Amino acid sequence: YETDHQDYCEVCQQGGEIILCDTCPRAYHMVCLDPDMEKAPEGKWSCPHCEKE
């Protein structure tokens, strides 16, 4: 199925295993987040940009 999420990391602009924000189209590698994540979040997750809003 098609999503509106970007298929690359917002921080480093590379693809790969990325996690998707449930609020906006941004996507991130877990290691590119500050602080980085050990494992993928369970349930709904909002990226740092959305958390600030």
Rank of each mutant, 00 (worst) to 15 (best):
M30N: 05
C12E: 01
E17C: 04
Y8C: 06
Q13A: 15
W45N: 10
E53M: 02
C32S: 00
P35W: 05
C9W: 01
D22F: 08
A27H: 04
C32L: 01
C50Q: 01
H29M: 01
E17M: 07
C47P: 01
T3M: 14
S46W: 12
M37S: 13
L20K: 05
C47M: 00
I18F: 14
K39P: 09
M37H: 06
G15I: 01
T23K: 06
E17P: 01
A27W: 05
E17K: 07
E51S: 08
E17Q: 08
I18Q: 07
A40E: 08
G16A: 08
K39R: 09
D4A: 09
G15M: 11
Y28R: 05
D34S: 07
P25I: 10
V31I: 05
E38K: 05
K52P: 09
W45F: 07
H5P: 14
I19A: 13
T23H: 15
V31F: 10
M37P: 12
P35S: 14
C21P: 00
A40T: 07
E38L: 06
L20G: 14
C21H: 01
M37C: 15
P48Y: 09
I19N: 09
Y1S: 13
Y1L: 04
P41C: 06
G16P: 03
A27M: 09
W45K: 02
P35L: 06
V11W: 11
C24D: 02
H5E: 07
L33W: 12
I18G: 10
A40Y: 02
H29P: 00
P41A: 14
P48G: 09
H5Q: 08
P41R: 14
A27I: 03
Q6S: 12
D22S: 05
I18H: 03
C32Q: 00
P25G: 10
V31S: 12
C9D: 01
T23R: 03
P41W: 03
E38R: 10
Q6D: 13
Q13I: 06
H5T: 15
C12H: 00
A27N: 07
E17N: 14
S46L: 07
Y8R: 14
R26Q: 12
E38H: 09
T3Y: 12
M37N: 14
E53P: 14
Y8D: 05
Q13T: 11
M30H: 03
C12T: 03
M37D: 03
Y28S: 05
E17I: 06
A40C: 10
E17L: 04
C47R: 00
